[in-house]
């Protein structure tokens, strides 16, 4: 990768980004790819890959890439965002990009918290999960991005992967890129390690992600 990683050691987001880059290399599409970054830990990717990248604002990467795609539909437009950027502050634009079937690929790193700001409740925070802003445990079910987007777009490619299921994650991303090439909206949500805010390491991190799969089953939707 191009520069030193700014992500915490063990962060799942580097695995997502490296997988994306490997696919682009295999497809000889590095030059064609443009990676827009939401504000969240996603912003740390700004110089992580040797491709065109730019930071946007929190919740605004999808709208920005919709605009980019409308100007350059021949390039590959990626919107890389956290779960908060996708399903809370940026939901309005995510839903509408999906509803219009804008051919952009949204990649959501789901770590069940607002990681960049220190672990507050996110739209993906799970029932009974404790965070700084849900000290006695979150009292509702999390947002299911797959169901939400499917409800507005029948043609969209939708999949949920996990950083401990690397082969499937790669396949989902490949299919999402193909969907964009075919003129369709695509979204891949990936359950991603956040050792810093989960306050776990090693084997426990895998257990944490596997537990997440009860609320967020992986697969294509």
């Amino acid at each position: 990768m191009s520069k030193d990683s700014k992500f915490c050691p063990g962060c799942g987001q580097t695995m997502i980004l490296q997988t994306l880059y490997r696919i682009l290399q295999e497809q000889k599409s590095e030059e064609k790819a443009v990676l827009g970054l939401d504000i969240g830990c996603s912003l740390l990717a700004w110089d992580f890959l040797p491709i065109n990248t730019f930071q946007t604002h929190h919740g605004r990467v999808t709208a920005t890439m919709v605009g980019f795609n409308r100007a350059r539909p021949d390039l590959l437009s990626f919107a890389y965002t956290g779960d908060g950027g996708a399903y809370a502050i940026g939901l309005q634009s995510l839903l509408w990009a999906a509803k219009r079937n804008d051919p952009v690929t949204v990649i959501v790193a789901n770590n069940a918290v607002y990681a960049m700001t220190g672990g507050q409740t996110a739209p993906t925070t799970m029932k009974d999960q404790k965070t700084d802003t849900s000290p006695s445990g979150y009292d509702a079910d999390p947002v299911d991005g797959m169901k939400l987007i499917r409800s507005v777009n029948e043609k969209a490619y939708l999949a949920r992967g996990a950083v401990n299921e690397m082969k499937d994650m790669k396949m989902y991303l490949e299919k999402a890129i193909q969907a964009q090439r075919d003129g369709n909206f695509a979204m891949v949500e990936i359950l991603s390690f956040c050792p810093t805010n989960w306050r776990v390491k090693g084997k426990e991190m895998i257990e944490y992600v596997d537990n997440m799969k009860t609320a967020f089953p992986t697969g294509e939707f």
Partner: peptide
């Protein structure tokens, strides 16, 4: 016609980045 002015502004930003 975007979903709100926030999206109008950011789609403009994206299109500008792309050179339109």
């Amino acid at each position: 016609q975007t979903e709100d002015e926030i999206a109008a502004g950011f789609t403009v930003c994206g299109a500008l980045m792309a050179g339109s």
